[in-house]
Design a protein around this nucleic acid. Structure first.
Length: 279
DNA sequence: ATGCCGGGATTTTCCCGA
């Protein structure tokens, strides 16, 4: 089974490019972020014609997450336990939830598509929201792992944190003083290791960014960031046979500012089971 | 080469992104 995560930065603006890539790369499951639309606006027909079913969570033109899968999508949820909300100018509990998380079980694997809040600046309430969001995600993941031993589990998405200085190639971003590279954000991401989740891509692809700003020639200069990750449980990591960052998807006509991150799992798909035996 | 920001809506200007 081949699964991927991709912040598509508007699925309506990039549906043809997205689905063409999935077919070309034989992707079974794609976790999308920043679809930037409601389900009724999502270009479902293009995915369905290519053999993918969908689970979509979008509330408005902001954020939005989804799964596209060749295999059945089961047990979908659109938030984790105690997920914090956000509303500009407001604070405290009970704020509206944003469309930033979707959990689903596919082929016996529990997956999340996650769009972690940006943070905006170290002084902004959005930064506290980001740290709180990550901490509560960890708590929910820990509880789920304890309740579901043996089920492969992965958090996939745009974490909006560059864990190491080598993951930050934008010369205007200052480690420790900018969002994405502050110590509390890095600590919040590293904390997933405390519950046994590890970056399953980095051991296979140690170098490379997953995002380049549209502005100021960041891509031609290769001044990007590595902020999109697949964090797997030990049962998930044991299935991983390969991984790749599809840098070429930043090229060409109307790209997203992020590129896909892919892992191959040693798990048969239904298609494999249906394939006739050849003697 | 990969080329100087792009998407969406409250659309002709603003908000958001990282």
């Amino acid at each position: 089974m081949r699964i991927a995560t991709w912040n598509v930065n508007s699925i309506r603006a990039r549906v043809r490019r997205t689905v063409d890539w999935m077919v070309r790369e034989d992707i079974d499951v794609l976790a999308m972020q920043e679809i930037k639309c409601r389900p009724d606006q999502f270009p479902a027909d293009v995915f369905e014609e290519a053999g993918y079913e969908l689970a979509i969570h979008g509330l408005n033109q902001w954020n939005g997450v989804a799964f596209a899968s060749r295999l059945p999508i089961e047990d979908v949820v659109t938030a984790f336990t105690d997920m914090p909300g956000f509303l500009k100018g407001e604070e405290g509990p009970g704020l509206p939830l944003e469309a930033r998380a979707m959990g689903a079980t596919i082929n016996g694997v529990r997956l999340w598509s996650l769009y972690v809040p940006n943070g905006r600046s170290l002084e902004d309430p959005h930064y506290i929201y980001k740290l709180d969001w990550l901490a509560r995600l960890k708590t929910d993941a820990a509880a789920w792992l304890a309740a579901n031993p043996g089920v492969p589990f992965a958090l996939m998405g745009d974490f909006n944190v560059a864990p190491f200085d080598s993951d930050m190639g934008d010369p205007t971003v200052i480690p420790g003083l900018s969002t994405h590279v502050s110590q509390p954000e890095r600590d919040a991401l590293a904390a997933f290791g405390e519950i046994g989740l590890t970056d399953v891509v980095r051991p296979i692809v140690p170098e490379g960014f997953t995002y380049w700003d549209y502005k100021q020639l960041r891509f031609p200069r290769n001044e990007g960031m590595r902020i999109d990750f697949i964090l797997g449980s030990p049962d998930f990591a044991n299935l991983v046979t390969d991984a790749s960052i599809h840098r070429n998807e930043r090229k060409g006509e109307a790209p997203s500012d992020h590129v896909p991150v892919v892992v191959d799992l040693d798990l048969p798909t239904e298609d494999d089971d249906d394939r006739p035996m050849i003697f």
